[in-house]
Each structure stands twice: as C-alpha cells, then as structure tokens.
Amino acid sequence: MTSDQQVAEEDVAAVTAQLGRTPRGVREVAHRCPCGLPAVVQTAPRLADGTPFPTLYYLTCSRLNSRIGGLEASGRMREMTERLAEDPELAAAYRRAHESYLAERDAIEPLGTGVSAGGMPERVKCLHVCVAHALAAGPGVNPFGDEALAELGEWWRAGPCAHP
C-alpha cells in the first residue's frame, strides 16, 4: 500500500473507506479535511510494480469528489480551458502550477516526462487533480483548483464523508 514513507493505519483505513478500495502508492496524507480525515494523499511517482503513476496528488474525500464531478458535468473544464487562450496571466499561472507539480514529483522520483496531471498546462482535463493540487500546495499555486474550491464552498460541513 505505501511507498517509502509510513502512513498511519487509521489513515489507510479512512482512505480505503473513502475510495471503496485499497489505495496504491500512498506516501503521505497531503491535506486533511477540517473533519480530520485525509482529503488528499501524495502518491509515489511509480507504483510498487514499477508502473509510472504521474498523479502526485490524489483526491480521496468522496463528498468532495462528488461535488467536483458536478462541476465537471456542468462544463466548467471547457470554459476554463477557453480562458487559458484568452488570458495570458491565467495561462502563465497555470503553467507555473504545472512546473511546480513536476518539480515536486521529480524531487521524489523523476519519471523522465514533462507530463504532469489533469491536462496541465495546456488544458483543464480533470478538476479533481487541480483541486487536489490546490489543497496540497495551498492557495495561490493552482488557479483552477483555487477557483473550483471557492465555488464548492464548505463541502465538509455535513461531517466526515466516510466512517472507517
């Protein structure tokens, strides 16, 4: 289940309950929901069998995942991608998010690729990745993750999304 770092058993149980399956390649909890459960985990750049896994930050909160799915279904990714072509400052900020993502992943283990995740930096392909990155890195790093989080509001208000 884990890579080169130890993850507490209660966190593994929580992530398993959130995902409905045992997580793979988890290095650490990268962000906790205000309810205390993991919301984002950092994963190893390669799975235990050597398979490349370029998604450094993986969103585990099932409630947040569902709410982001609603944004994706409403066409927000297409609108965000269109804005990249129209707004050079936004495009530059998104490119910096991509570069930050690559630098963090490569510091763990270089994959020899310029591919990050979620379509960065050319398009918004997956808001789940953008939000996971924004939660793990903090505000001001991934503009579309920050934007989606602001739009979603306090997803945690109803309490834990899972009961491990």
Rank of each mutant, 00 (worst) to 15 (best):
C33S: 14
D11H: 08
A148N: 01
L71Q: 02
Y94M: 15
D146G: 04
Y101C: 07
H128G: 03
A91Y: 12
R21C: 13
G114C: 07
A44I: 06
E28T: 04
L19M: 10
S116W: 03
L59H: 06
A48P: 12
N142V: 00
L84K: 03
D49W: 09
L56K: 03
A134E: 04
E89W: 01
H98C: 06
V131R: 05
D11Y: 06
T60L: 07
Y57M: 04
L56R: 12
G36N: 11
R95V: 13
P88A: 13
T16N: 03
L127Q: 06
A17W: 11
C35H: 14
R46E: 03
E109H: 05
T51W: 09
D11S: 03
R67K: 12
H133V: 00
P110I: 04
A48C: 10
R21A: 13
E9R: 15
A85C: 05
P45D: 07
P52T: 07
E104N: 12
T113R: 07
D106K: 07
V12R: 04
A92K: 09
G36Y: 14
G36P: 03
S62E: 05
P54R: 13
R67S: 05
C61W: 05
T16K: 02
Y58I: 00
V15T: 06
T43R: 12
A103L: 04
L135E: 09
V124M: 05
C126H: 14
Y57R: 07
